[in-house]
C-alpha cells in the first residue's frame, strides 16, 4: 500500500517544551491509524502539526508526495486533509446545515448548489438530518461531535484526522461513532484517530501508534501495542496513577 502521509522527524516546540519530539510516522492509504498516549503526550499537537495549525520547529510533513510543511491550514484542507477538534469548535450562530456547507463550499471547492446534495448525504450518514436547521450552539455533546465529523467529511478529505470523537460519550453513542467511522473508511478515506477509549482502537484501527512525551513509543497491530509492556507502563500507569 502507498503512503498517503509521511511525517519526518517532526518537532513542535512551545518555548522549551518539545510537545512533539522528532516524530516520524507513515500513514498508508485506506487504513485507520489509531493514536494513543497519556494526556499531554503530544497527540493533539501532532494532529495540529499535520493539519497546519502549528508550525513545526523542524521536520517535514508530506501529503501525497507534496511537501506541505509550509502550507496554511486552509490550503491543506483544500488539498484533502480534513480534521475534527477534541473540544468541538462548531460555528455556534450558524445552523447545522450551514456548518457542514462551509466544508463543502470551501474545503471541497463546490458551488453552494452542488454542495447541497453532498451536505444532505453527510447529514443523513451522521444522523443530523432532522436537526439541520438548528443552531449549532444549541446542540448536545454527541450532536456536536457528529457535526465535527460531518463538517470535516464535507471538505471531501482523503485523509481525515479525528481527535477524540468518542470521548465523553455513552457506550451506545460510542457504537454509533464506530459505525460512522467504519463507514467513512469503507468509502476510501484514510483516517488518523486519536482516542482514549481503547475498545474503539481494538475494533476499528488497523495499526495503533503509542506516543509518550512527544516521542514514538511503539507502533503496530492494535492487540500487540495494547498488550506491550511499555504501553501498559507509560499509558495505563500514568492514566491511573
Amino acid at each position: 500500500m502507498e503512503n498517503v502521509l509521511i511525517v519526518e522527524n517532526l518537532t513542535i516546540a512551545f518555548g522549551q517544551l518539545l510537545a512533539v519530539n522528532s516524530l516520524s510516522i507513515e500513514v498508508r492509504e485506506g487504513e485507520i491509524l489509531g493514536i494513543i498516549g497519556p494526556n499531554g503526550s503530544g497527540k493533539t499537537t501532532l494532529l495540529n502539526g499535520i493539519s497546519g495549525l502549528y508550525k513545526p520547529k523542524s521536520g517535514s510533513v508530506i501529503f501525497k508526495d507534496i511537501d506541505i510543511t509550509d502550507f496554511s491550514p486552509s490550503r491543506r484542507c483544500r488539498l484533502g486533509i480534513g480534521r475534527t477538534y477534541q473540544v468541538p469548535r462548531t460555528f455556534e450562530k450558524m445552523t447545522v446545515y450551514e456548518n457542514v456547507l462551509v466544508g463543502g463550499v470551501y474545503g471541497a471547492s463546490l458551488s453552494e448548489k452542488k454542495a447541497r446534495y453532498k451536505v444532505y448525504e453527510i447529514l443523513e450518514l451522521t444522523g443530523l438530518l432532522h436537526k439541520k436547521d438548528l443552531f449549532a450552539g444549541s446542540l448536545a455533546l454527541l450532536d456536536r461531535k457528529r457535526l465535527e465529523v460531518a463538517r470535516a467529511l464535507a471538505t471531501n478529505p482523503q485523509l481525515l484526522l479525528l481527535d477524540e470523537v468518542a470521548a465523553g460519550l455513552t457506550e451506545a453513542e460510542v457504537n454509533e461513532v464506530l459505525r460512522i467511522v467504519k463507514y467513512i473508511k469503507e468509502s476510501g478515506v484514510t483516517i488518523i484517530w486519536i482516542e482514549h477509549i481503547l475498545r474503539t482502537m481494538m475494533e476499528a484501527a488497523d495499526r495503533v501508534l503509542c506516543i509518550a512525551s512527544g516521542k514514538k513509543l511503539i507502533c503496530g497491530n492494535p492487540k500487540e501495542v495494547l498488550a506491550a509492556e511499555e504501553v501498559q507502563e507509560v499509558y495505563l500507569g500514568v492514566e491511573e496513577g
Binding site: T90, M94, V102
Partner: peptide, 24 residues
Amino acid sequence: SRLGLGLMAIRDNETAAESMGVEV
C-alpha cells in the same frame, strides 16, 4: 454569497474556519 458563508464561519470560530478551507 460564498464569501458571506466564510465570513460567518470566521465570525463564529476563525481557527475552525481556517481548517475547513476558508481563506481567512
